[in-house]
Computed example of a mutant assay.
Amino acid sequence: MSSEKIAENARLLAGEDVDVSSNRVPPPEANFMKDPSKLKAFQAVTYSAAANEGQTTRTPKNNAFWNQEMGKIQYFISKTLLVGMYLVFGLFRYLQYECNKMKLRIWNVIYNPSNTPQLIRQDVTKLDKIPRRLAAILEMKSVGSVGGGVKGLMNDGSEVACWTVSAGIKHLILYDFDGILKKNVLEFKEEIKEKLSRYFGPSNVPKFALRIPHKNKVHFSNDDSHKVSLEISLLSNRDGRQTIVDLTKTMAELTKSKELQLQDITMRLMDKELTQLVGPEPDLLLYFGPSLDLQGFPPWHLRLTEFHWEQDNDQVAYSIFIRGLHKYSNCKINVGK
């Protein structure tokens, strides 16, 4: 193959324009156009074809107004249907909200312990079983709202602690996303003491301990005794996925330095380490919000946990607490081998 032919093919592949007029064979139309009489006949035929094409293309324009009106009608019908569906759903949601609020008011009247441990104990003794470990997710409301701010959060946490110790549950996990209770652990300890004295009397305040697993610290209600009736673990988002990431990095570094063998990393080892870093898995998790939101709760500790919340609820109420215990009492947990 000649170099000129190769260059020409290369240009064609590259998409460049190539002058091939000298080698091109003219099509039959080129010779046809040289005869004047034949040229006139050809022009007449092409003009007639163009006229017919223009007529056919102008035909839809006669229906443009009708198509435009149909489009407006379709748009109006679609918009009417969407607005109707929105109104129907809004009315249904409003009725559902009012119904849920009414049920919550009725439950608050039925389950009203009035800061009495004996009434709470009576409600619990009717149950077939109670959880050994209870967890609750708390949210700090805005400062301007009722029960808001840090003080409101500590008040909610102390109420749950009083209900828990009155029900005979030994372990409680309180989770708030930002770790406000951790940062104010001493003030929170005093808040629990004060609330327990209202329930049990100043001379019969149960002993408890506040545990911060992330810092490996424990604060006892009485420094002279480490035997407690209730152990409270304070968790935050730092104890969730970030702890799993930190543990994974630590195991990777130990494996790299030959201090840990790869075959030693098992699910049992992970479970043991996470239990030491965060704590044991709760049996029941309570959420005092309108819809379930785990807010970064440690995922490793929710494998067999039962959840309970009430739709459209926005307060920490005893009725939610006792209904959660009822739900746990009636549930059946199957653990695989």
Rank of each mutant, 00 (worst) to 15 (best):
E139K: 12
M140V: 02
M140Y: 05
V143E: 14
G144Q: 03
G144Y: 07
V146W: 09
V146C: 03
G149D: 07
K151G: 05
G152Y: 05
L153E: 02
M154T: 08
M154I: 07
M154P: 07
N155Q: 13
G157E: 07
G157R: 04
G157Y: 08
S158V: 05
V160K: 00
V160P: 00
C162Q: 06
C162I: 08
W163A: 04
W163Q: 01
W163R: 03
T164K: 00
T164W: 08
V165M: 10
V165I: 14
S166W: 09
A167L: 02
I169Y: 01
K170A: 12
K170H: 15
H171A: 03
I173F: 05
I173V: 15
L174R: 11
L174I: 15
Y175F: 15
D176R: 06
D176W: 03
D176Q: 13
D178S: 14
D178R: 15
D178G: 04
D178N: 15
G179Q: 08
I180G: 01
I180M: 03
L181G: 00
K182V: 01
N184P: 08
N184W: 00
N184M: 04
V185I: 15
V185C: 02
L186H: 04
F188A: 01
E190M: 10
E191R: 07
I192R: 01
K193L: 13
K193E: 11
E194M: 11
S197T: 11
S197V: 04
Y199W: 15
Y199T: 06
G201I: 14
S203C: 08
S203F: 13
N204H: 15
P206F: 00
K207F: 07
F208I: 12
F208D: 04
F208Y: 15
A209F: 02
A209D: 06
A209G: 02
R211L: 12
R211T: 11
P213N: 14
H214D: 02
N216M: 12
N216Y: 10
V218P: 01
F220H: 08
F220S: 01
F220V: 02
N222A: 09
S225M: 08
H226E: 09
H226T: 09
K227C: 07
K227G: 02
V228A: 00
S229D: 14
S229I: 01
